[in-house]
Simulated assay, not measured.
Amino acid sequence: MDAKKAAYCDDLKLIKQGAEAKVYKAEFLGRNCIVKERFPKKYRLPEIDEKLTKKRLTQEVRALQRCRKAGIATPAIYFTDLVGSVIFMEEIPGCTMKDFITNNSHEKLSDKVVCAVEKIGEILAKMHNADIIHGDLTTSNMILKTSEQNDGPIIYMIDFGLSQSSSLAEDKGVDLYVLERAFLSSHPDSEDLFEKLLQSYKSFSKNCEPVFKKFEEVRMRGRKRTMIG
């Protein structure tokens, strides 16, 4: 991050770098925050890269705002720099759902694990009810924050960099399939746990039948690719 962008915040510390962006921890106007910076792709024409980067940044901000409007916990956005391709957002204290499930792998079907996983199903159903497609669902992109009121887990959805708006059952089915693949890869022998997630999704979805039909179709295509190699 260059000096101009860094001037917005203090104590900038790189914590993650992915294919699309760098993620920093920092302080913004006296508050701890997460800074996400999309960087240029050398393999793309500059004008195309700039247009695509701005589009994805805008989509991410809109998805975060739409989720909050739909009652889904996401980090608050403090500031967006479209020119510098940077988002400054709330830092959520807690652990990822991946760490939570892994750390409780000895009791996968315990009440606390099942409750958290069912909450994921509820959140995804509400997202899809609002036609929000995450695009990169994994348990690493969910942060578990324990409620001080003891009224159940609060799960924050993060990393909407590949999100889009779509009412198509196909896109929602693919969203579920991506999560299933990531879930079973990160948490082996957890098929029963994921089934509870799907049942919760079904309970909160306004129109789950076409979504589940597409989900099964995508599953079958995935299995065929695996068999063929």
Rank of each mutant, 00 (worst) to 15 (best):
S105P: 00
I123T: 08
A125F: 13
V113E: 03
I101P: 00
K119Q: 12
I123M: 15
E91A: 15
L124A: 13
H106P: 03
P93N: 00
S110K: 01
I120R: 06
K98L: 05
V114N: 08
D111H: 09
A125L: 08
K112W: 14
H106D: 04
I101M: 02
T96Q: 06
L109K: 03
K112I: 09
K98H: 08
S110Q: 04
N103T: 04
E91S: 11
I101D: 04
N104G: 14
V113Y: 02
T102C: 10
V117W: 02
M97C: 14
I92R: 10
K119P: 05
C115F: 08
D99R: 13
V113F: 10
I120T: 08
F100E: 01
V114W: 05
K98A: 13
M97R: 09
M127S: 10
L124V: 12
E107Y: 02
D111F: 13
T96W: 02
I92L: 11
N103M: 06
L124M: 10
E122M: 15
N104S: 05
K108I: 07
G121M: 11
T96Y: 08
T96P: 09
A116D: 07
E118D: 12
C95W: 08
V114T: 11
D99G: 02
V114Q: 10
T102V: 11
K108G: 10
S105K: 07
M127R: 15
V114I: 15
C95N: 09
M127E: 04
D111Y: 07
C95I: 11
V114E: 06
C95Y: 09
A125K: 13
T102G: 00
K112L: 14
E107M: 13
E91N: 13
L109I: 03
V113C: 06
C95D: 10
A116Q: 02
M127Q: 12
I120V: 15
V117G: 12
V117R: 05
D111S: 06
I120A: 04
K126R: 12
K98M: 08
E91V: 04
E107R: 06
L124I: 04
G121R: 09
A116H: 00
E91Y: 14
L109C: 01
E107A: 00
G94K: 00
K112A: 08
D99Y: 05
V117A: 08
T96R: 14
G121A: 12
T96C: 00
P93H: 06
I123Q: 04
E122V: 15
E118C: 07
K119T: 13
F100G: 03
K98W: 05
N103R: 09
S110P: 10
K126C: 07
G94N: 01
V114R: 06
P93L: 05
K112P: 03
P93K: 05
C95T: 15
C115L: 14
E91R: 11
E122T: 15
S110L: 02
C115W: 11
S110V: 02
K98G: 14
V114G: 04
H106Y: 05
K98Q: 09
P93I: 02
I101Q: 01
N103G: 13
E107Q: 12
V117E: 06
I123G: 11
H106Q: 05
T102F: 03
D99T: 09
L124F: 11
K108W: 04
D99K: 13
G94C: 11
G94S: 04
E122S: 15
